[in-house]
Design a protein around this nucleic acid. Structure first.
Lengths: 223, 223
DNA sequence: TGTACATCAGTGAACGCGCGTTCACTGATGTAC
DNA sequence: TGTACATCAGTGAACGCGCGTTCACTGATGTAC
């Protein structure tokens, strides 16, 4: 059956978002021309009317991913409460994104693209760097607000923020569900607060955490 | 030219270590039958006299990798000084391994294998878990020695230890050398110490770090 | 408003590449007598 | 100790698969007169 003709501008966005969807669900490995064409509703060779090659499609996917991550940061920054609350909100969003079975953070923070093609490495680096710039901005605000210690290096802190999430995602991916992603990031977050929070904040967050834990336990008993 | 015949037991180890060497230098992507056979000095089909398929070769590589990482942990644990020194030694070994252009840690702590085949995920999980068990053991020793706070969760701490290294390796890989791996892990290590070290140790390590930094600066001026 | 033509998105067959793997063979090495 | 045979590692050609990509074509859509 012949697909209805569509303007190339429309098709380009259709292809890009279909590609993103495939990547979300199956990782970059799951993105091939046959599947992509099927998702769009055309034949594989038709893709070449709109993109010169597959790498340009991947570029488009990276653009969309960058947008989503920027959105996550932007949303977190609108949260009420102090800088640590906003950081925590970003962490939760990140975890939620992973649990929503989205491959996006796995793709960005893994090395899937890197080895295949070093041109995409640059883009990836830029995306991660932009994300971490957002983290750093929140941390600096925290230093002004008095929630974050002023004697710590914001560059190091933004790096370690990623360290709170990334290893947990890794192990969660490997473990096939046995690894408790939420609990582990929660535990690492607590340590992170001990490292960067002012003394008062560190105490406050520890108390908050134990509240969250008993809340979760109560919820578990109910269900 | 016909290769000299060799006992299959010998060939098996030759193939495994040639495969490891390829993986070290080019990642798992760089491991294919043609290259592997060439490295061993036989023809591709000859490999099938010794391994039933490529996945069994990868298994052998994972065995070797597990050995290397276990060795790293074992060596670090023989270091003099307290638990934080030993942990720091392990961190240095890990970074050194990466800088020695070895792909090993990248392979293990990335998701390269995972998506291709979930059978290998299990093995990877096991390897990482064993590594982190070593880290956890050191942390618990630290709690007994009084170098590590007793009110922190060793499970979380071992996770965050990985978080000190992994994101830095990621960015270093992407950045094509622009990212300073040593400096960044050093900075994250300092934060990590703030999180898990007892108050006295945290102060001590901060001082040590500033000494290391001026040492490095002096060294830089010399060269 | 209708006709003639140009444009351009969609098609299906085919290509070339890299890859893991098979298979009938060769010939060196080891073993039994 | 020498001969006959079995074993088994190495060979090269070929296969099948998945993949990205090309190309001559079709036919719908838009445009000029």
């Amino acid at each position: 059956m012949r697909a209805k003709k569509a303007k190339t501008e429309l098709r380009r966005t259709q292809i890009a978002s279909a590609a993103l969807s495939l990547v979300e669900r199956h990782g970059l490995r799951g993105l091939n021309c046959a599947r992509l064409a099927e998702a769009v509703g055309v034949v594989p060779s038709a893709l070449y009317r709109h993109y010169p090659d597959k790498d340009r499609v991947i570029d488009a996917v990276l653009d969309l991913i960058q947008g989503r991550m920027a959105e996550n940061v932007a949303m977190a920054r609108t949260e009420t409460g102090n800088a640590l609350h906003r950081l925590r909100a970003l962490l939760d969003r990140h975890v939620a994104l992973v649990l929503k079975s989205s491959f996006i953070p796995r793709v960005v923070f893994s090395e899937e693209v890197l080895q295949r093609d070093s041109a995409h490495s640059q883009r990836m680096y830029q995306i991660v760097d932009q994300y971490l710039s957002g983290v750093e901005a929140i941390i600096r605000e925290g230093q002004i607000e008095g929630a974050v210690r002023t004697d710590i290096d914001p560059k190091a802190a933004r790096q370690l923020f990623l360290g709170v999430i990334q290893p947990s995602i890794l192990l969660w991916t490997m473990s096939d569900g046995r690894f408790d992603l939420r609990a582990q990031t929660e535990a690492c977050w607590l340590l992170f607060i001990q490292a960067i929070g002012t003394a008062a904040e560190a105490r406050r967050q520890t108390n908050l955490a134990s509240t969250r834990m008993t809340d979760a336990a109560r919820k578990d008993q109910k269900t």
